[in-house]
């Protein structure tokens, strides 16, 4: 099971592809089969083997705050969200 996952807000994503270039596991692809309301191909997580660690590097470089990141955290370490 993946330790992390991301959700791309397709109303914000502009398809700049910066997230695809920084993902350490190379798990982000552009969805070439659809367009966002602004007319861009949005980024999406492609993680068939459950490799995403929820490291949030993609969110750090995203200029549009389009990426929300979740991570499985040991119950005793749950903290408030920051980047």
């Amino acid at each position: 099971m993946a330790k992390g996952r991301i959700v791309v807000d397709e109303t914000l994503c502009k398809g700049c592809e910066l997230c695809t270039s920084v993902c350490p596991k190379d798990l982000i692809r552009m969805a070439m089969d659809r367009l966002t309301p602004k007319g861009y191909h949005p980024a999406m997580l492609v993680d068939p083997d459950g490799e995403c660690t929820g490291c949030a590097i993609c969110a750090v470089i995203c200029p549009d705050s389009a990426i929300t990141v979740y991570r499985l955290v040991p119950a005793e370490k749950v903290r408030t969200p920051t980047a």
Partner: peptide, 21 residues
């Protein structure tokens, strides 16, 4: 078994509006 909780790690800042730029 260790208990894991899915936690929000990063989301859009509350000091930004919801508007896309």
């Amino acid at each position: 078994e260790k208990e894991w909780i899915e936690t929000l790690i990063y989301t859009k800042s509350g000091s930004l509006t919801e508007l896309g730029t």
